[in-house]
Amino acid sequence: MFINRYPAPGSPPATLLPHVTNGEGKKPRIRLIEYNNDRLDEREISDVGEMIRAIEAGKVTWINIDGLGDIEALRALGELFNLHPLALEDVLNTGQRAKVEQFDDHLFIVAHMVYQNAEKTICGEQVSMFLGKNYLITVQEEADYDVFDPVRVRLRAGRGSIRKAKADYLAYALLDSIIDHYFPVLDEVGCSIEDLEDNLLASPDRSIVMKLHGHRRSLTQLRRFVWPLRDLVNGLLHDNSGLVKDPTKVFLRDCYDHSVQLMDFVESYKEITTGLMELYHSSVGLRTNEVMRVLTVITSIFIPLTFIAGIYGMNFSEEKPEHLEMPLNMPELYHPWGYPGVMAVMLLIAVAQLIFFKRKKWL
C-alpha cells in the first residue's frame, strides 16, 4: 500500500539510486505543459535533452515526470534547472516527510498524495515539486494514477484564474488537489468504520477486529502524511524568497484550513477505532460473564440435588429383606413410593431455586 525507499546506510550524500522493477529501471514518462493567458501547449517529451528547445519564453512551464527509474534523466534535469543534488536525492528516497526547502532560485516541496485504486485499496506516493519563477517541475513515483486531472482540465479549458497566474499559483492548485483528495479517502474509511461499529454491536466477531486493525494501520500512515502538511503550507505562507506571491498566499490559507480539518478527521477516526477495539473486548467480557452466570446458576441448582442423590443413591430396594431389622436406616428406602417421592422433592427444590433466582434478577 505504502512503499518507502531509502538509500543504503553509509551512502555518500546526494547518492542517486533508481527505482528498479525486475532488475531494470523503468524509463519515466515526461509531459510538458506550457501556457499563458491566450494559449496552452501540451506534449510528451522522450528525452530531457530536447526539453530546453521545447521551452518557450514568456510562458509558465509545467514539467511532470512519472517514474523514478532513470537517474540520468533526473540528473540532466537537475543540471538544466540548477536543482540541488540533495533535493534530487530526496526525490528518489520516497520516505520523506512533507516539507518545503528554499534554495537559491527555487523551492523544493515534498508532499504525499493518497488515492484509492480499482480494488478500493488506499495507495499513497510521494510527489516532489521544484518551484521556480516561471516553471514548476513535479516528479511522481508511478505513471498509472495521480490526483492532478482536475487541474489539467482547468488548464485546458482556461477556467478560473489559473492561466492568468504564474507558477506559484499552479503549485498551489496541485497542493490543493492533493489535500482535497484526502477527504474522499477518509470518508470511505469513516463509512467503513461506522458499518463495523454496527456489526460489532450486533454480533462481536474476530474478523471485525482484524478489519479495525487494518483501518488503524491505514490511519496511522495517513496521520504521518497529513500531520506535516500543515507545516508545509505554513512554510509557503511565510515564504520570503519572492517565489510565492501575496495573491497566492491568500489561497494557501484555504489549504492550511483544509490540512487542519484533515488532522481532525484522522485523529477522530483513530479515537473511534480505539474505542471500538475496547468495545469489542468489553462485549466479549460481557458475553463471557453471561455464560459464566448461567453456568453458575445451573451448578447452584444441581448442588442440593447432587447432595440428595448422594445420600439416597443406589440404596433403594424393591422389597424389604425377610426378618431383617434396620432401626437406624432411612424409613423411605423401602417405602413403595420412596423413589418417586425423592424425585418429586428434588424437582420442587429446583423449581424453588429458579423462582428465587428470578426474583433476585440473577437470571
Rank of each mutant, 00 (worst) to 15 (best):
Q96W: 10
S11W: 07
P204A: 11
P150Y: 02
M129T: 05
T21N: 11
S207G: 09
P150A: 02
L252Q: 13
E318D: 09
L83T: 05
L88W: 02
R159D: 09
V153H: 13
I349E: 01
Y256D: 08
F265H: 14
W337M: 14
P331M: 07
D47I: 03
A98N: 08
E271I: 03
T61L: 06
M330L: 14
A344G: 15
E119Q: 15
F130W: 00
V260Y: 00
E42I: 01
K133T: 09
E332M: 09
V185G: 06
V233N: 07
D264E: 14
R29F: 01
Y339M: 13
S203D: 13
F251H: 15
D257S: 09
E267D: 15
E34T: 01
E44Y: 02
R224K: 15
W362S: 09
D205Q: 14
P321M: 10
M113H: 10
L222P: 11
E332L: 15
V345T: 10
V297G: 10
P228H: 10
V244K: 11
D66E: 13
E197W: 00
V266I: 10
N36K: 06
A76H: 04
Y339F: 09
V185N: 06
L136Q: 05
G214I: 11
Y169L: 07
S203P: 04
R39G: 04
G160A: 07
F302Q: 10
G78C: 06
E278N: 14
D231M: 06
P336R: 15
R359F: 02
P7W: 02
S46C: 04
L252K: 11
A87R: 08
P228L: 13
K120A: 14
